[in-house]
């Protein structure tokens, strides 16, 4: 597969598992997209994640921890990009955090992270999430948005054998292959997205990375 075929395969495979995929020229546009996603998100999308249901006391209290303002967690951005994102969020009243995700276990609106690699044959993102904040951004957010450089997409998992082995050998390490949103079919084999992890997965392929 040449690079272009890799990207096309990656997009179609990721979309097939209900991930949203866009391609942008630079990181700047990706950050703008994230902010739009956050703005368009319903005021309390937690609705979809269980808060409106009659719960027992403690889990219900968890919902109350949720603050009124929307939150984007971006633990993985370079200083310059973080500044850009801050400037985009501030006028819209979106709160941006880069660490301390552990105090938001009730849920976040958007978690924004970088993927180190992509695997075209499955539409898979490979995230080095050894830092706990990066890990949490992809677990407790309702929408997980992942940036990936167009040049980081490999054709198959076999092509990543060496770099992944190096990454693991240099541990401790916590790497995640992520393909679509969290899912279950445990009740009557009916597919439900968003069980314990994100309800939605969005991917921004950044062309100049």
């Amino acid at each position: 597969m040449n690079r272009n075929q890799c990207i096309q395969t990656f997009i179609s495979k990721a979309e097939a598992v209900s991930a949203g995929v866009i391609t942008v020229p630079h990181v700047q546009q990706a950050l703008e997209h994230v902010v739009t996603l956050c703005t368009d998100k319903e005021a309390c999308r937690l609705l979809a994640s269980g808060c409106e249901h009659p719960l027992s006391q403690e889990p219900a209290d968890l919902c109350r921890l949720k603050e009124w303002s929307k939150i984007i967690a971006a633990p993985d951005l370079a200083a310059g990009d973080l500044e850009t994102l801050t400037n985009l969020c501030r006028p819209l009243g979106i709160r941006l955090i880069e660490k301390g995700l552990h105090s938001h276990l009730g849920g976040l609106d958007i978690g924004l992270t970088w993927a180190r690699y992509g695997i075209a044959e499955n539409g898979t993102l490979v995230l080095d999430s050894s830092r706990e904040d990066i890990r949490l951004a992809g677990m407790i957010s309702e929408i997980h948005t992942v940036l990936i450089g167009a040049s980081s997409i490999a054709a198959t998992a076999d092509d990543l054998l060496e770099p992944l082995t190096r990454l693991f050998a240099d541990g401790p390490n916590y790497t995640a292959f992520i393909t679509g949103a969290s899912r279950t079919a445990d009740i009557e084999r009916v597919l439900a997205l968003g069980v314990h992890g994100p309800l939605e997965l969005h991917i921004c392929i950044v062309q100049d990375c």
């Binding site: 499955n122 898979t124 830092r131 706990e132 390490n173």
Partner: peptide, 15 residues
């Protein structure tokens, strides 16, 4: 599924 939603690779004691 050609791959599951998550494949988690844990090496050593992490953060």
């Amino acid at each position: 599924q050609s791959i599951s939603s998550y494949v988690t690779w844990i090496t050593g004691a992490n953060d």
